[in-house]
Structures are given as structure tokens and as C-alpha cells.
Amino acid sequence: MGDEPELKGHLNLVVALPPEAKPLIRHFGLEFKSGDTFNVYANGGETIHLIISGVGKVSAAAAVSHLASLSRGNSATAWFNVGVAGHKTLSVSTLVAAHKITDAGSGRSWYPPMVLDLPCGTAAVRTVDKETHDYPDGCLVDMEATGFYATALRFTSHELIHCLKVVSDNSEQNDLDYGTVAKMIREHLDAVETVADQLLQLSIEKSDRQAPPSHLELFLQQWKFSVTRAHKLEKLLQRWTLLIPDSDPLDSAIPECQDGKEVLEFLTERLERIPVKAASL
């Protein structure tokens, strides 16, 4: 285990109910991690977390905040809400991804960008405060999506936040049997995994993009830099990595530089001398 490279992608799953969570916990090989405020599960590498929020948008928002602080996530962490929702006409057990999420109370809407290869159709989701059998035309009705989405947005970008809903009730079949929820989710585990994999990939990509240059820490240990200079150093090392990938900047700088100021001058001067070749752009 210790020799395995650390996965940089992180995915946080948020579900409202234990029956929704159960198949996911099993499928992703998650284990119980903590249960102080919310029950939280994670895989061995702690790259995937799952939290059971309870019903309602306030609970969902609180659960997202809780999980954000508990997990090792950052702004590259993907957030994924899986759950059940009502719909006027769609058959029970139909899987749908949210393309618009509207808070019934405030009227405010969010639009998850459609950047994934989705394994299902999409629809608008309307988040209500109380359970209802009034289904607006074409919309899914749930009780968590806006709390989940709006709060997750505080931690990452829109593209990394998605909701997948299984239709649990409709205008003809509106007596939701919670005993069947686990079965409904279980039927769509492959689709859930398809979305989860893509979210993890986006998370890895964002994480790579945000990663500091590999030598930064060594430079900061070797010389003293003010905050402003450390920021400049990071940018210079980033350029060095791209333009002179075969040369170790630390080895080059050590014999030449006495302090942080000299390091910045040295790196700047070396980078200035690198010829820009069209073929290497």
C-alpha cells in the first residue's frame, strides 16, 4: 500500500437516506469512518467519501459543510448527490441527471454544466421544503438538491458538482415505499459509477492544475522568501518546469544564489535566455 502513488482525485458522495447509501457503500467498498454528527464512510485511500445527510436541503447543506472539513478534499474535490425524486410522468426507477436545480422557496436556479458523458437523460430538479405529490411539468421534485449544490459550490467549481436522481414516485404511483429505495439505487450502480469515474477524472485534472511546482518546497527550505517573493518563485518554477524540464532548478541555483532575491533574479535571467521554438510551443 505504501508504495502506491497517492490518488489526487477526490469524490464526495452525499445521500439523504440510509437505504440510498447502502448500495453505494457496498459498491464503492466504503467503510464507516465517523458518526458524530452525520454518518460518514470512506474507501481505504480516502479518495471517496460518503455522507448521509438526512432529509431536506438544510440537512444536505450542513452535511456538505461537514464532509468538506472532514475529508481531505480541496477545491479540486468533486461532489456527487445521488438520491430519489418524484416526477409527474417518468416511470418509477428511471434514472435522471439534473441539468437545472431550482429552489422552490426562493426561485433561485443553478445550472450544472453538461460536461460529462451521461448514462441517462437529464431534467430540471425542483427542491421543495415539504414532501409533495404535486409534480410540476417536466421537473423532478426532491428535497435536497439546492442545499447540496449551493453549498458544494462554496468548495469547488460547477463542473465538479452533479446530481443523479432515480424516480421513486410519480402521479400514478405516489406512495413512496422506502423499502424499495435501496433496490432502485442498486439497479443503477453502473450508471452511478460511470458518472463517479468522470468526476474523479475531472478532480484529478483540477488537482494537477493546482499543484505547486515540484521544487517549490525545497526552495522554500533552502532560502527565505517573503510572501510576495514566494509567489513569484512559484510562477518562475512553474515556467522552469515547462521550458527546461530536463534541468534541476535547485541544482542550478544553489551554487549561484545567497538569498531569495538572488534566486528570483537567477531564475528570471535563465528563463529569459531560453529560446522559444515554434515546435516546442
Binding site: 441539468h99 436556479s109 445550472y111 454544466p113 453538461m114 460536461v115 467549481s157 460547477h158 463542473e159 483540477k206
Partner: peptide, 27 residues
């Protein structure tokens, strides 16, 4: 896929969007 919005700014302007990821599948 057709999605209704009230004003385009609701979709286009919010902060916290990733231009690079969106550029692969712009709507």
C-alpha cells in the same frame, strides 16, 4: 438538450465556473 433559463446571466455569469473544462463541451 433544451434547458430554460430566466436570463442568460444565470448560466453564463456565475463565479466558480471552469472555462477549460467547459470549453470541451460548450453549450
Amino acid at each position: 438538450r433544451r434547458i430554460r433559463c430566466h436570463r442568460y446571466g444565470e448560466v453564463f455569469n456565475p463565479r466558480g465556473q471552469d472555462f477549460r473544462i467547459q470549453k470541451r463541451r460548450p453549450a
